[in-house]
């Protein structure tokens, strides 16, 4: 069974006078443990696809199955529960909460999952060690470099051990050195079994993936395997 299946997935944005078709009847599947890079020019629908896969946006028609569940049939609350236990997000602009420290930002998904304090703190500390962020754990996001912020964002995305990570241009705001660092992190997570879907403009970032999907005007125009196992 695939981790993700979309069948004729369509998304239309209705503006005041115009309507924009963002995704045109897309059929797209991802197996568990895969690392997929979604590429294409600006406005081709990459981020829209990612948002729908992450259940933070609705689609107009078609079906979406996540781990065998028809997401279209789920209520908002059920989608939230499904999301928080199974999906981690990494954004281009990090989207860390400025009022929370590094530790608290990473801790947040576990709080929403209702973890008790002791295991929660253990898990966060473990991750901080792994991400080499322990010495920065009490800092606020504005006190960190871009690379450090994205490492925190990745840590927050994986803290609950989700089987799937959705990354939207994770290196877009980073210099090449820090970008490399983040990509290696994602690569190692994938090697540990986490499925990753990453939207990117960067060929270099895409080279870390196993499969590259090219989108153009809301359609998948090309799909190819990137590297061998």
């Amino acid at each position: 069974m695939n981790l993700i299946d979309t069948i004729r997935l369509e998304k239309i944005f209705h503006g005041d006078a115009v309507q924009t078709i963002a995704l045109r009847k897309i059929n797209f599947s991802v197996k568990a443990g895969d690392f997929v890079a979604v590429m294409g020019p600006s406005g081709c629908g990459k981020t829209t696809l990612l948002n729908i896969l992450g259940m933070i946006d609705n689609w107009t028609s078609g079906d979406y199955f996540l781990m065998g569940q028809n997401v279209g049939l789920l209520k908002e609350k059920q989608r939230t529960n499904l999301r928080k236990s199974n999906i981690g997000f990494v954004f281009q602009n990090f989207n860390l909460i400025e009022e929370l420290t590094v530790f608290e930002n990473i801790e947040l998904p576990l709080q929403y999952l209702g973890w008790k304090q002791k295991p929660r703190h253990e898990r966060v500390n473990e991750l901080l060690e792994k991400m080499k962020l322990s010495h920065r754990k009490d800092r606020f996001p504005v006190q960190l470099s871009g690379g450090q912020q994205q490492r925190v964002a990745v840590a927050r995305a994986v803290v609950a051990n989700p089987p799937l990570i959705l990354a939207d241009e994770p290196t877009g705001n980073l210099d090449s050195m820090h970008g490399e660092e983040v990509m290696m992190l994602l690569d190692s997570l994938n090697k540990e079994g986490t499925t990753i879907i990453m939207v990117t403009h960067s060929q270099r970032d895409a080279s870390y993936s196993r499969r590259i999907v090219h989108l153009f005007d809301g359609q998948i125009i090309n799909e190819n395997l990137n590297k061998l196992e």
């Binding site: 609350k77 999301r83 989207n95 947040l108 998904p109």
Partner: peptide
């Protein structure tokens, strides 16, 4: 809105 959006993405319920 961005902060609240992040919280929602991370699984915060309406009540929270």
């Amino acid at each position: 809105s961005r902060e609240i959006g992040v919280r929602k993405v991370l699984g915060a319920s309406r009540i929270q």
